[in-house]
């Protein structure tokens, strides 16, 4: 046994006579590369801010563009040098509003149903369906809007009322797209409400409906608002549905049955052609991109902030 011990010991390249720190170059190298991989995401953000900022600056330096007119102008017609963002922004807000009108009530109802009412079996059946719904590419939703919802709307409200391209149909389908997002985040928020709170409600003789509406929902309110804000951010940035169904050509209107191009839709249409780098069109998509980036970023940060505060409540 003793012999064996020594024999085995010798087979280790036993530097362990010392405890001295060794410089492990490969370890440092690996750690360095992994840090760079992590740091790369900072470069991405810097890239977004830098390129959008730089080209947008070029755009605003052109003699035909003025920042004030950009923010307040009611016409976006590049060929006659009119760059007012309002028609594009209005239709972005209009499609977003229609989408939220669908997605908020339906999404919340689905969330409440799944988390409070549905049996485990029903939930196991429904959740994957929602996941599938959320995973379908948006171009498919665009196709659905144009070939199904629009004809349906035209059938219902009359062909002379509803245009072939209209913001209403795009917004409606966008609502279906965003429904699963709101439902799943809200459901997480509802599930995070502690059992003890529910039991307190039942202990006082409240009905299930009362517990859900008067105790659980208010307690999950901040999580739900975070979900809604995230949904709005998603709707503002959504592109293919509006590019296919909402119509080409900026149009300052609040009528959801008329066609009107959104910011994202405009970017797609302009860059779909062979865009030359020195044109004002090229610069204008960066200005619009900057507006999109900043507004969605702001919404995302607000939503994260709310979620963070929400968490602190229960810890």
């Amino acid at each position: 046994m003793k012999n064996n011990e020594n024999k085995l010991s010798d087979s280790f390249s036993r530097q362990n006579t010392t405890l001295k720190k060794r410089r492990r170059w490969s370890e440092s190298l690996i750690q360095g590369s992994l840090f760079l991989a992590g740091f790369f995401s900072i470069l991405t953000t810097a890239g977004i801010i830098f390129t959008l900022g730089k080209e947008a600056l070029l755009f605003f330096q052109k003699p035909e563009v003025k920042l004030f007119e950009f923010l307040t102008g009611t016409a976006w017609q590049p060929h006659i040098n009119q760059f007012g963002i309002l028609p594009l922004a209005t239709s972005t807000l209009l499609t977003t509003a229609v989408a939220m009108l669908i997605a908020i009530p339906l999404g919340l109802t689905v969330a409440v149903f799944l988390s409070e009412y549905a049996s485990r079996k029903v939930r196991n059946f429904l959740k994957p369906i929602l996941e599938v719904l959320a995973g379908i590419p948006t171009i498919v939703y665009g196709y659905f809007a144009l070939t199904f919802i629009t004809p349906l709307l035209r059938e219902i409200f009359g062909k002379d009322v509803v245009n072939i391209y209209n913001t209403g149909s795009a917004g409606l389908v966008m609502g279906i797209l965003i429904l699963p997002l709101i439902a799943s985040i809200s459901e997480d928020a509802l599930a995070a409400v502690p059992r003890s709170l529910r039991e307190a409600g039942y202990g006082l003789g409240a009905t299930k409906f009362e517990v859900v509406f008067k105790i659980v929902l208010p307690a999950a309110l901040s999580g739900i608002s975070a979900a809604i804000i995230l949904g709005i951010s998603r709707a503002i940035g959504e592109t293919m549905i509006v590019a296919v169904a909402a119509g080409a050509g900026p149009n300052l209107t609040l009528n959801p049955f008329k066609g009107a191009e959104t910011m994202t839709g405009h970017i797609v249409r302009i860059s779909g052609g062979d865009l030359s780098y020195d044109s004002i069109d090229y610069d204008s998509i960066f200005a619009l991109g900057l507006v999109l980036f900043l507004s969605t970023l702001l919404l995302n940060i607000i939503s994260q902030w709310i979620v963070k505060r929400f968490r602190e409540v229960y810890e």
Binding site: N16, T18, L19, K20, K21, R22
Partner: peptide, 20 residues
């Protein structure tokens, strides 16, 4: 102190410590 050395000295390698 282990093996005549303070385990927490700056020049001691924790990996080496756990090896022994």
């Amino acid at each position: 102190i282990f093996d005549g050395k303070n385990l927490y000295d700056r020049d001691v390698d924790p990996v080496q410590v756990r090896y022994r």
